[in-house]
């Protein structure tokens, strides 16, 4: 399985991940090699096998709906790149 530069661009777009133009070829080559490694999975017949998402096959634990946390907005926003009036600032989306 081999990926083209266009494939890499498409995946990078899906992941919102900036890739330098000059590195695209290397990523295409590395990812193609990694995908080659995956082809051996096809050797196994997995028809009747149930997929395993989690080692303990746990179901999601539920808890009582009780108030536990207090509001610490300023404390939590102290590590944000840009905030104003308790809001996270990003470039304008709507004119």
């Amino acid at each position: 399985m081999s990926l083209t530069a266009d494939d890499v661009k498409k995946i990078a777009y899906l992941a919102r991940l900036g890739i330098d133009q000059q590195d695209i070829g290397d990523y295409a080559k590395d990812l193609s090699n990694i995908l080659d490694l995956m082809t051996s999975m096809d050797e196994l017949d997995t028809g009747a096998v149930q997929p395993m998402a989690h080692p303990m096959d746990q179901t999601q634990r539920l808890r009582a709906d009780e108030v536990a946390e207090t509001n610490q907005r300023e404390h939590f926003q102290a590590c944000a790149p840009q905030v104003e009036n308790g809001l996270y600032l990003v470039p304008k989306v709507i004119d």
Partner: peptide
């Protein structure tokens, strides 16, 4: 420049090559 640029460049500049490789592989 805009929100998409904020996401894309922050991630592109903030992550190193191996992390990017794995994000791309996983996304694919």
């Amino acid at each position: 420049q805009d929100l998409a640029d904020l996401y894309t460049r922050s991630r592109g500049e903030g992550f190193g090559a191996e992390v990017k490789r794995r994000i791309l592989m996983g996304t694919y």
